Simulated scan of single mutants.
Amino acid sequence: MISFVRWLLVLLFIVLSFPFLCVYMLINPIKNRNLHVACRSYSVINKIFSVRVAVNGFDTISTAKPYIYVANHQCNYDVLIVAEALKPGTVIVGKKSLRWLPLVGQLYWLTGSLFIDRNSPRASIQSLRKISKSVVADNTSIWIFPEGTRNKGGDMLPFKAGAFRIAKEMGVGIVPVTISPAVGDIAYNSLRPTEVSIVAHQPIEADEVARMSAKELASYTREIINNMIPVI
């Protein structure tokens, strides 16, 4: 019953807020800020589900230059944890199939977020290269889940190298991010709060990125993220 009421409240909130959010994002001239606005709005859903998100390390990340944020990906709820931490001027890279989901696809488009074809490595790299041309010019950071799919609470999957190749080509740094596995234990049908954390680690700056191969970067970044699991 508790779960039903919560999901009903979430549905009502989304349906009522979506038109107003769309209008705002359509007229907002600073398009790479739209995702931050959407995240601030929909982070209310965490309160409905009694999810308390501890955000650490993001306040030390400079907004004066773009970064590629890379994080572990366990379940669909990860996006709402990211919503508590995402900095202005950041967009998310998601799989192409999300484009056709009701509301989700429209939100991705309105927030300036980006799609890549996970099923085709060549198409994925081409998409990321196209993205990179505007990212540095607009001082836009991008957020990627480099596992490519959810690990469903198990061991982290190998990181795909595409994001790291683009970081080298763009000449930007990488911010490793760890999302705690507690996100998979949310008690939807209980009033008991769930404590979850999201941690931004010290950036791998552009000069260090340039010294490593994409494969080495992927392995190094994955190790940093994995070493913080489990976190509260």
Rank of each mutant, 00 (worst) to 15 (best):
I2C: 04
S3I: 09
F4W: 12
V10R: 00
L11K: 09
M25K: 04
L26Q: 10
L26I: 15
I27H: 08
I27W: 13
N32Q: 13
R33C: 12
H36K: 08
A38E: 06
S41K: 13
S41I: 15
S41H: 13
I45N: 01
K47H: 13
S50F: 15
A54W: 09
N56W: 02
G57H: 00
D59F: 02
I61M: 01
I61D: 04
T63L: 14
T63C: 11
T63V: 12
Y67S: 07
Y69K: 03
Y69V: 10
V70Y: 03
Q74R: 10
Y77E: 00
Y77H: 02
A83R: 01
A83F: 15
A83T: 08
G89V: 09
G89T: 09
K95N: 07
K96Y: 11
K96F: 09
L98G: 07
P102S: 04
Q106V: 13
L107E: 11
Y108F: 15
Y108N: 11
T111L: 07
T111K: 05
I116E: 06
D117W: 00
S120F: 03
S120A: 04
P121Y: 05
I125N: 09
L128E: 04
L128R: 01
R129T: 02
K130W: 10
S134E: 14
V135C: 15
V135N: 10
V136Q: 10
V136P: 07
A137P: 02
I144H: 01
F145A: 14
F145V: 03
E147H: 05
N151A: 15
K152N: 15
G153R: 00
G154T: 06
G154Y: 09
L157N: 09
G162F: 03
G162S: 09
R165M: 14
I166M: 10
I166R: 01
E169L: 07
E169C: 06
G173W: 07
T178Y: 05
T178N: 10
I179G: 03
G184T: 10
D185M: 10
D185A: 13
D185W: 07
L191W: 15
R192K: 15
R192V: 14
P193T: 07
T194Q: 10
S197E: 15
I204L: 14
E205K: 00
A210G: 04
R211L: 13
M212C: 12
M212G: 02
A218W: 06
Y220P: 01
E223N: 13
E223F: 08
I225W: 09
M228T: 14
P230D: 10
I232V: 14
